[in-house]
Amino acid sequence: MLADTLLILSISIATAFLGEGLTWLLVYRTEKYKKLKTEVEKQSKKLEKKKEASGPNDASGRNAKKKIERQEERLKNNNRDLSMVKMKSMFAIGIVFTALLSMFSSIFDGRVVAKLPFVPISWLQGISHRNLMGSDFTDCSFIFLYILCTMSIRQNIQKLLGFAPSRSASKQGGGLFSTPMQAAK
């Protein structure tokens, strides 16, 4: 069991590096991406500052508000371009990873690779108990452990290598999750 878990850990480290390497090759090192990224970061910071300066009470009038809106529009466009640049290579990487994943899961098919110290909630049991026999839900399948390893390792590697998106950009912009936050303010 220990050998399996360590193997899965190293597989996910390797695939995380592979993924980042491929993304670097296809996206991060391209001029277009670099330009767009610095642009988005600069604009996000500027916008943040402007918003803070104008404040919620709207003392500075409509003119400032209009300016902010225009800038927001520009930022949105840049963000869209940025995700388009990323999209193509993400697609390619996605295909490679699906192939790798199906290969690995066929190797570990039906094997209990670890014992979970807890019983997962019911909608996770489909993943954590995938392709396993028996009804002991503390048995852990390959895919569950792999997903957990990847969640932890990939993000940390991105952060270490400096590929993670900057905070002000993801806050201002364009992330799907930022909208309710902005509305709440």
Binding site: A114, K115, P117, L145, C149, M151, S152, Q155
Partner: peptide, 12 residues
């Protein structure tokens, strides 16, 4: 996620 990985591996 890091916590879970460490916990699961050592526990099992």
């Amino acid at each position: 996620a890091t916590f879970l990985v460490a916990w699961i591996i050592l526990y099992s």
